[in-house]
């Protein structure tokens, strides 16, 4: 059924972590469940399912969004990236290393959302990355273990390294 006509399920086609994919999706299924259950992308963590915790944050058309607050049928035509796509491409290797080095996770439940949110912040050329601004950027991602300091450290260190590095390490890693 074409998306213009009401139906309880629709066919969708979108780009998922660089690959063209298709699915038949019940209208009521949110994008987080679609990614987890139809595509096995369990890095999309579901915490609260009402947009508060940030664990399910993914990139849609390059912007961070809550997978639990988009419907799966709304992915039609979009470019979707999950933490699996970001990490397996090597694009955020430096950020992952910084999280590791600084012990910026304990249980790890919030980590995919933190990485995706930080990816958007670090990709935004206009974003200044003072600790204050990093804290504001991750304010929508709850961590119940770390107390956030190590996470802010990791993002700040990555921002600094990308700014000061002889080459753009992010671009280098993507090639």
């Amino acid at each position: 059924m074409a998306p213009e006509s009401p139906d309880r399920a629709h066919a969708v086609a979108f780009t998922l972590n660089g690959e063209a994919v298709r699915a038949h999706v019940p209208a009521r299924m949110h994008l987080g469940d679609l990614l987890r259950e139809s595509f096995g992308l369990t890095g999309v963590h579901l915490g609260c399912e009402h947009g508060v915790c940030g664990a399910c944050t993914i990139l849609v058309d390059g912007r961070a969004v809550r997978a639990c607050l988009m419907l799966g049928v709304q992915a039609d035509g979009a470019t979707v990236e999950t933490v699996e796509g970001l990490t397996e491409s090597g694009r955020i290797r430096d950020l992952q290393d910084a999280f590791h080095t600084r012990n910026a996770l304990q249980c790890g439940y919030c980590t995919p959302g933190m990485l995706v949110t930080a990816t958007e912040l670090l990709n935004d050329a206009d974003a200044a990355t003072s600790r204050e601004e990093i804290r504001a950027a991750i304010a929508g991602n709850y961590c119940r273990c770390t107390g956030y300091h190590a996470i802010v450290d990791a993002i700040a260190a990555t921002a600094e390294a990308r700014r000061d590095g002889p080459k753009n390490s992010r671009r280098e890693a993507a090639e």
Binding site: E4, S5, P6, R8, A27, R28, E49, Q74, D76
Partner: peptide, 21 residues
């Protein structure tokens, strides 16, 4: 929790959206 069952439509024009509503 999960949303209840509902139908969904994504009209491509304002007039089509208003007609559905």
């Amino acid at each position: 929790m999960k949303a209840p069952d509902f139908a969904y439509a994504r009209p491509a024009s304002l007039d089509a959206a208003l007609a559905l509503l």
